[in-house]
């Protein structure tokens, strides 16, 4: 496909816009922080603009762009993983999302929920990168195992056992606390 220089921006935007939110969410799941997610997201957009002909030709841009992001993240893991080492603190949590969590309307429950989210964040930080990613993409983002396979290239069987081990580890980490 020949794309005149003139019109690249418009085509890029039109092709990519439907996948921006999904890509950003993936960036956040990979990096675990807003600042790193924005860096990763921006890097990948620049990269994708350089691959505009591929983007235009590809059948499933959602999966392909996610794969590009995943590999860019892996190749630059050290740079993007910085903030993962920090414990999750309240300021990192999106106030708005917490307020809009379903079924939360009394302050006591709200506080309990916030506490749960913080503890979950800490438990997730204890998992290996592979384990954390599979549980966040599958259980949180609702990806199918085949969709994760398309991004990471790992066989479904491997992903499934990794998912089960990740959940078991999370349960163990969380049940160490009294209220869970």
């Amino acid at each position: 496909m020949d794309i005149s220089d003139h019109n690249r921006n418009a085509i890029f935007e039109r092709l990519l816009r439907p996948y921006l939110e999904r890509l950003y969410r993936l960036a956040y799941r990979l990096t675990g922080s807003k600042a790193e997610a924005e860096d990763l997201f921006q890097d990948v957009l620049v990269k994708l603009f350089g691959k505009l002909e591929d983007l235009a030709a590809i059948e499933e841009p959602g999966s392909w762009t996610s794969r590009v992001m995943f590999h860019h993240f892996i190749d630059n893991r050290r740079r993007f993983a910085r903030q993962r080492l920090l414990s999750v603190d309240e300021s990192q949590l999106p106030q708005k999302s917490i307020e809009s969590l379903p079924g939360v309307d009394d302050p006591e429950q709200d506080a309990e929920r916030l506490d749960d989210i913080i503890r979950l964040g800490k438990a997730l930080a204890e998992l290996s990168d592979d384990h954390r990613l599979v549980v966040l993409l599958h259980d949180t983002e609702g990806y199918k195992l085949t969709e994760i396979q398309a991004i990471t290239g790992d066989p479904v069987g491997t992903l499934k056992s990794r998912l089960h081990r990740a959940r078991a580890r999370l349960r163990a980490l969380l049940s160490a606390g009294a209220t869970f």
Binding site: E13, L20, L136
Partner: peptide, 19 residues
């Protein structure tokens, strides 16, 4: 488990920056 989503203007800027 929430993702703090940026606003629409952020996506516009990111696209503009990429191009």
């Amino acid at each position: 488990c929430p993702v703090p989503m940026p606003d629409a203007a952020y996506f516009d800027r990111a696209l503009a920056q990429a191009t």
